[in-house]
Design a protein around this nucleic acid. Structure first.
Lengths: 359, 359
DNA sequence: GTGAGAATTTGAATCGATCCAACAAAATTG
DNA sequence: CAATTTTGTTGGATCGATTCAAATTCTCAC
């Protein structure tokens, strides 16, 4: 009988159960949230009524409003949602975040700020206790949007001057120096840099002007690290082409075209991400150039794919999983303070780098 | 001044703004949710007050309770959360789900049923409009748990007899037959099956008894498909070892050990997942056996990794992304009906299969 | 200047639970 | 047996918004 109406009827509420069982809503609530304080007899009766009426248990929507805490963290990016499952760097990071959440029983809500529709699930509407922000392209906008929500958040990559936002990142200068020194010591003298963006939506060769006015200080720091170290080897860094890409296939390939169209092509490429480095290896091989015979490449990040490429990629590895874990904990154990953590990097020498070719 | 107290003060509510601006709750609410219906002058005044008081905008918690709809779907598994980012099959599936969610502006909440703590974010407490269930190990428990929540849900893999649950899966029998025929036609006569579980937490050689009482009909169907086709080639399927694994390294390797310890080792392996197939390739190579020279392998799933292995994997590809998309849509456009969809599979011949070796 | 109709604004009701002070009943103590 | 403690139960207040019928104000034509 009831089943005939079930489709139409609005869901059963705790109050309905209370009335049907002849107890107050307070007691009914206790039956589900603190069963030990209600008399066994009453408890069983209420449960039986609930069961019989097809009650789904206390609705988290109601509970949430009262409790105030969702017990989930939001992870946001300006990319589409699929980014979390496609991008190797994101995946490793998510593994770290997942670990922390698993350990504390928190949930993860994925949020894309790509869709700015009013009604869509976004930074403004996500039901979470705080955010971890993937500050890649458009990171500054992401931070601004999130700040308005007035919930705790952590930026991944401390690519912001702004000391008022919590962030976790790596020592970009030190990492970059390691990479540059390695190549210089192998005898390389002609370099090119495959760079991340200095500001949003930029692509193409970066002028000193662009570098100076960088919004993303992470990018700027890596470049500074490269240049500082190369200068020590007497290399004229002013002549090094620096091509900004969007860290994906198209613009990276365009960058390589542009770089190798120059009169003196480089024998060594400093890539600011493993993704670009791997694309470069691919591009060079397709062009008949040997890596590292003709051109050496050092990446940055230390994603697992780097170990599997041919040749395996020499890179500056970030402790990605650990960063993810810490970011999640910052939100979960949030105490109202701003934290900025800088993690160390690890230099991993594999086979994409070798001695500079004899000219 | 205010900033001194901000740490202590509870967050500003819409009602506070309303009072401060001298308008009713209703109007204040309209300023944010339907600005066009409030007089420009009032609208600006309220907004100014909100800005000045540091109002974060209408809290989704409150809105949710009224609206009833979260605009997010939950994706659940019995594995830890990191499963979503580690497992290749899950990743492709999530890409499909992401696509559908991106298109409709819905969010994704990741839920693990591994953690059964009372307070943790789980199937019971997730703030979502419905669930997509990854019914791998423990799928039946997952379905039972979800059913109690009385929210729409779709099971991935129609590995359930239960016709009352919505599900999307592939034609397992047809796929399995394709794989078996391919190997039989290449002249193979000695087979082994690397099987998924027939019931929860089982591992080891499966007896006909186990197969008959299978909980996971998907597994049973694949095996049935293999056997049907092989019988047509006059092969005695009763002699074929079928090893149930948990679809991960350890049990798969154990299975291979067990299978190759037999007196007549197989020349062809039918793996019910690419993951197992890939592990098998690895194991065989480490053992000095050539794939496909000594042993041929056909996988099942069609994950991207299969194209990258050495040798590339011959497999039965499911339209994983499409399944994900459809599953998400089933929840997003839920109309109260139970749907069960069976998708076709595609046979992809790569290089992990070859003619049976001369004996 | 008046009245009809349009444009705004109001304020109570609602969404679904939890919390807690107050009260009632039962158990224990002196 | 009264006084005290323990154990259970009650019902109003609250969480933070949205909704909608009714009330009010504004416009404009006549």
């Amino acid at each position: 009988m009831a089943s005939l109406l079930e489709g139409q009827a609005r869901p059963i509420r705790l109050a309905d159960i209370a009335k049907a069982a002849g107890v107050s809503h307070g007691t009914a609530s206790n039956v589900f949230s603190r069963p030990e304080i209600v008399r066994a007899e009453v408890r069983e009766r209420v449960k039986a009524v609930a069961e019989q009426m097809g009650y789904a248990g206390p609705d988290p929507k109601g509970r949430l409003l009262r409790a105030g805490k969702v017990n989930a963290i939001g992870v946001a990016t300006t990319e589409p949602l699929s980014y979390f499952f496609d991008d190797p760097f994101a995946r490793v990071m998510m593994a770290g975040i997942s670990e922390a959440c698993d350990a504390t029983g928190a949930g993860i809500a994925l949020v894309s700020a790509a869709n700015q529709e009013k009604l869509s699930w976004n930074i403004q509407s996500a039901l979470v206790d705080g955010f971890v922000l993937f500050c890649i392209e458009g990171g500054s906008r992401l931070v601004d949007l999130t700040r308005e929500r007035k919930l705790p958040f952590v930026a991944l990559e401390l690519g912001f001057q702004d000391e008022t936002v919590s962030a976790i990142g790596v020592d970009n200068v030190a990492g970059a120096r390691l990479a540059a020194r390695h190549l210089a010591e192998l005898g390389h003298r002609r370099f090119a840099v495959l760079s991340l963006g200095f500001a949003d939506n930029r692509t193409g060769f970066a002028t000193p002007e662009v570098v100076r006015s960088a919004v993303y200080t992470g990018t700027r720091d890596r470049l500074a690290g490269y240049f500082e170290e190369l200068s020590r080897f007497g290399i004229d860094t002013a002549k090094i082409p620096v091509y900004e890409t969007e860290n994906e296939e198209k613009s990276t390939r365009a960058g390589l075209e542009a770089i190798f169209a120059k009169s003196e092509p480089p024998t060594a490429i400093l890539a600011m991400s493993d993704r670009m480095a791997l694309i470069a290896i691919d591009w060079l091989k397709a062009r008949g150039l040997d890596v590292p015979g003709d051109v050496s490449i050092v990446g940055f990040d230390g994603v697992p794919d780097g170990a599997l490429s041919t040749p395996p990629l020499t890179t500056i590895a970030q402790p990605i999983t650990e960063i993810g874990r810490r970011a999640a904990h910052m939100i979960l154990d949030h105490d109202g303070t701003v934290r900025r953590e800088t993690m160390g990097v690890e230099f991993i020498v594999r086979s994409s780098t070798g001695p500079a070719p004899r000219v």
